[in-house]
Amino acid sequence: MKQFSRVGFAFSAILLLGLGPAAKSGAAPIFEVEAQAGPLFSLTGLPGMTPAIQSGWDAKLSVAIETRDVFAPTIAATGEDGFGAPAFSGRLQADLFTLGQSPIQSDGNSYRAWQGMGLSLLGGIHSPSFRLPLAGILASARLEAGGGLRATKYTGTGLVSANPAIVGQAGLDIHVSSKVALGISLPLEFAWKSGGTALMFGVGAVIQYR
């Protein structure tokens, strides 16, 4: 837990550092609201049991702040959206997910269905805009990582529990207007749960307003 608190503190500090230069140089940070949903899978394992895949879905709602001053406070605007430098992004994300029971194994074991909600704090980089090959559509890519806390419940029971997790996501945003982007995201999460581990991964459809 101590380790997790340090991770949370580090990301909070990065967020604040990111905002500082933006304020000094007068470049306004960009605020984003994003919704994401899609299928989710978990490679779940316990000591003494064969790991198995659980499948389900998740939905995420997040707010993010993006500034380019962290990486290039003096670079002139050259990119297609007005910026030529990569941007730093800090994101506060709320998650809602559910995973079904894993298939029964030959010895009768399986992993229980569970569902949960959580909060994550992520930091990462957002590429300058570029034209997608073939279609020529204006797009940008991003890569984010951070930590989160989850409150979960074993489906069909009254048993609730909580766990920490490392979270990350890679995404591709397609700019349909100056304010709105649609995209695809590949969320990844590693959770320590009930003495075992869950490596969760999925695909999310993204809608973003900035």
């Binding site: 779940t44 316990l46 049991m49 029971q101 029964i104 009768g108 074991n109 399986s110 992993y111 229980r112 569970w114 074993y154 048993l159 529990s161 749960k193 009930s194 003495g195 075992g196």
Partner: peptide, 8 residues
């Protein structure tokens, strides 16, 4: 009982 494991 709690925990991740279930049995058929």
């Amino acid at each position: 009982s709690g925990g991740l494991r279930d049995l058929a």
